[in-house]
Every structure is written in C-alpha cells, then in structure tokens.
C-alpha cells in the first residue's frame, strides 16, 4: 500500500514570497483593477460633478447673496431666507404645487393602471393601441399646451362644445381661478397617461406567469388574482413610479408657463414657475430664487424619503 489514505498536507514547495511581498503585490493587482473601474466612472463623474454637485453647492452659496445674473453679486446673509419664509406667494406656490400633485398623480396612476391591465388582456392590436396611447407623451409642452387650448378654449374648445351640447353653461377653463389649476392637471394627466401605462404594462408583463396559472387552478377569480397577486407583485414598479412621479410633478413648470403664466390671480403659480420668474423674468431677485430653489430641493428630498420609508416598510 504505497498510497496514503489521508491527504498530503505537505506543500509541494515552499512559498516563494513573503507575507509582506504578497500583500504588496495583491494591493497592486487590486488597485489596477479598481483603477479600471474608476476610469469607467470618470466621464459620468465629470458631468455629475460639474452639473449636479457643484450647482448644488453654488446654489447654497447663492442663497446668501443677491444679484449675480444681471447686477453684481452681493452678500446679504440670511435676508433671502427670511424673505422666502415671509413671502405669501411662496406659500401659494407650494400649496398649488402640492394640490396639483395630489390631483394629478392618483388620477394618472389609476387611469394608467386600468389601461395597462386592459392592454395586457387585448389579444390583438395591443402594440398599435400602445403606440397610439403614447403619442401625447411625445408632444413637447409647447405643442401640448397648444393642443390643450383647443380643448379648453372658452370660445371654440371641445370641452365647452360638449357642455353646450348638454345644455350647460360654457366655462372659462383657463380664465377662472377655480378652474385653471384643474385644467392644467387635466393636461398633465392627458400627457402622462401614455408613459405610465407603458411603465405599468412592462411591469405586468414581467410578472411570473406560473403564479397566475397556479392561482387560477386554485380557483382564484380575476379580482382575487388582481388583489392578491398583481398588486403585491407590482410593488417594486409602484414604488419606483410613486417616487419618480413625486419628484417630476413637484417641478411643474412648462404647461403653467405656457398656458396661464401663473394666473389668473396667482391660482396656478407653482414653485418652479416662481423661481423662473424671480430670477429670469423682469426681476433680478437671484438670491430669493436660489433660496426658493433650495427649499424645493429640500421639499422633494423630504417627500421622496418619506415615501421611500413608507413604501419600504410594508
């Protein structure tokens, strides 16, 4: 019996390099690999720093100054912050923006989810419907706003034509303080439905089919399958959608700027609109705009983080 039953623990040769030498070489080997990774990140990092990190820092700096775009910049300390917190129009802007979000996001999500479910069921022509539904999203706001004027125009808008047809009084959709923000919301919902439908549909298509077959065999009806399978399984998609929708919708500007320019009677003033006005329109209140911008930044971060917390937990 020449072979040994037990493993050879003897080394075939002595270690050639010392522990320290190995550590040095290993560090060098890993460093070279890390360096490659950093090189892959570098181009993105440059843009990220130049147009995201530095602007945030600069913005913070400008909240303590005034001027800087047309007039000379001057240090004013906390004056801008005081003004922002005292400004009535800031309160109005925040209120309008939040009210808008509370109207637009649930509406667009419910409509989009229904359409996504319906699209998933459509055996024929699904892709054609999908594309057609997406077309409003492709419209730039200037175009969307123009289109929407045809809908809400007091004299020849489609909505009023329908109202008149049913014997109702025509309304001044964009001209009355009660209706203007709702008209803006309608436009945003109309334009957003295509995008969110596509997103939800993609989520639905990605769900595991076996689970649905199993549930059907177990006797779950369509509603039960929706309630106990689709809703929980779509959570990651909803999670992403809610957070992103909040971030985007709190930046409402384009349609307001084009359709109502904040009016009538400040009923459609939004935060971003106010920032743009104070900074780039007739006034040169850069510092005030900066402080307001920073508040928007904090507001969005705050709301997004709250949503992430709430949605993660359940």
């Amino acid at each position: 019996m020449q072979e040994q039953a037990v493993t050879q623990t003897t080394r075939p040769r002595a270690l050639a390099l010392s522990e320290e030498e190995h550590q040095r070489l290993q560090r060098r080997y890993q460093r070279r690999r890390s360096l490659t990774a950093y090189l892959f990140l570098l181009p993105g990092a440059i843009f990220f720093f130049a147009f995201l990190v530095i602007p945030i820092l600069l913005l913070f700096f400008y909240t303590f100054n005034n001027g800087g775009i047309i007039s000379e910049r001057e240090w004013v300390g906390l004056a801008n912050w005081r003004n922002v917190l005292r400004d009535d129009l800031v309160i109005t802007a925040i209120k309008n923006t939040v009210v808008y979000c509370l109207m637009a996001i649930p509406a667009v999500f419910v409509i989009s989810m229904v359409l996504a479910l319906v699209l998933q069921q459509a055996a024929r022509g699904g892709s054609a419907f999908r594309s057609l539904l997406y077309i409003p999203t492709l419209a730039p706001y200037v175009v969307a706003a123009l289109l929407w004027q045809f809908v809400v125009h007091r004299d020849f808008g489609i909505l009023n034509m329908i109202l008149v047809e049913f014997g109702q009084e025509p309304r001044n959709w964009l001209g009355s303080p009660d209706l203007a923000l709702r008209s803006i919301t309608m436009l945003e919902v109309w334009r957003g439905v295509g995008f969110w439908t596509l997103l939800f549909l993609a989520g639905l298509i990605g769900l595991p089919k076996e689970l649905y077959q199993a549930a059907a065999i177990d006797g779950a009806n369509a509603w039960q399958r929706f309630r106990y399978l689709t809703i929980p399984l779509m959570r990651p998609t909803f999670f992403f959608a809610v957070v992103m929708a909040t971030i985007w919708n709190l930046q409402l500007f384009d349609s307001v700027s084009i359709l109502t320019n904040g009016g009538p009677q400040n009923s459609t003033v939004t935060v971003v609109w106010y920032i743009q006005q104070t900074t780039f329109a007739y006034t040169d209140k850069v510092g005030f705009g900066a402080a307001l911008s920073f508040m928007l930044l904090l507001l969005i971060l705050f709301l997004a983080l709250i949503e992430i917390r709430l949605l993660r937990k359940r």
Binding site: L15, A16, L17, H22, L25, Q26, Y29
Partner: peptide
Amino acid sequence: EDVTSGEIYIDDRLVNY
C-alpha cells in the same frame, strides 16, 4: 477569484497576480 493566501503556480510561474 483572488487568492487570499498561498500561491498558485502554472508551469512554475506564480499566477496569483
């Protein structure tokens, strides 16, 4: 995978790194 200790040789060449 990185070797955390010891040495691997292929044809008498140390290949750890």
